[in-house]
Design a protein around this nucleic acid. Structure first.
Lengths: 117, 117
DNA sequence: AACACTACATAGCATTGACAGGTACCTGTC
DNA sequence: GACAGGTACCTGTCAATGCTATGTAGTGTT
């Protein structure tokens, strides 16, 4: 509806900081995935559309922290794929992060309610 | 429980980006407030604790965008206060931002559910 | 051969939040 | 009246992330 809404666009970008890590870890919760596949899966969700230049650095960070581990697998059609799998450490961290995410949501919800008072 | 959990601390910091703007606008939804007061109000909420060096730049940005307007009022005890009040523009933007926030929450919720499948 | 799609990776940029520090007003007290 | 402590505002510097653009390379199609 609005053209070139710089502030809003910028704001949504900022909101994604940190959130993409959470989103990716949660997709990995269902089983191993490779980077390009994650791009497509998150692409299904409007507010989480992502591209390769964003996903690979995140996966590297997560691997450095040993929240995920990776292994290469050949593809029958296309270049080999680098799969990422949640480690136990990663699974625990994910629980913790999801819990923090929930409390953030509740906090904002609280502030919104106070307006209605 | 854990000492010096760099990754987690850093992650929570990143998650706050953009979110603080939303939080502040929502507190202003209940009526005009001055900066220092916002610091105290958000300080009541664990995950949103903020300090002055963070709040004032945000308020400036919001004023530049004309989402809030400010006026000075003397205090009976202490230096004068600069109150910030939501503008109509700000109220509309806030609605839009809250709506985006909700859809983000639903998106993450969706990803978490898929794990359970 | 040219093109498109898959798949991974990196460099440079813009933005934000955190921390530290600075200014200044007011009240109480020694 | 000097000092401490609380109130209130503001700015500069830094670190981290996401975005865009770009590059490499394998596979399949026309």
């Amino acid at each position: 509806m609005q053209m070139s809404d710089t502030f809003y666009d910028n704001w949504t970008t900022q909101l994604r900081k940190g959130l993409l890590e959470l989103a990716i870890l949660n997709t990995l919760g269902a089983g191993p995935l490779y980077g390009y596949d994650i791009v497509r899966r998150l692409g299904d969700v409007d507010s989480l559309v992502i591209n390769e230049g964003t996903v690979y650095p995140i996966l590297s960070r997560l691997r450095n922290e040993q929240y995920v581990e990776s292994y290469i697998e050949e593809s029958s059609s296309g270049p080999p794929r680098k799969y990422y799998r949640l480690t136990q450490r990663g699974r625990e961290e994910l629980r913790r992060m999801n819990s923090h995410w929930t409390s953030l949501h509740e906090a904002i919800g609280q502030l919104r309610k106070e307006r209605a008072r």
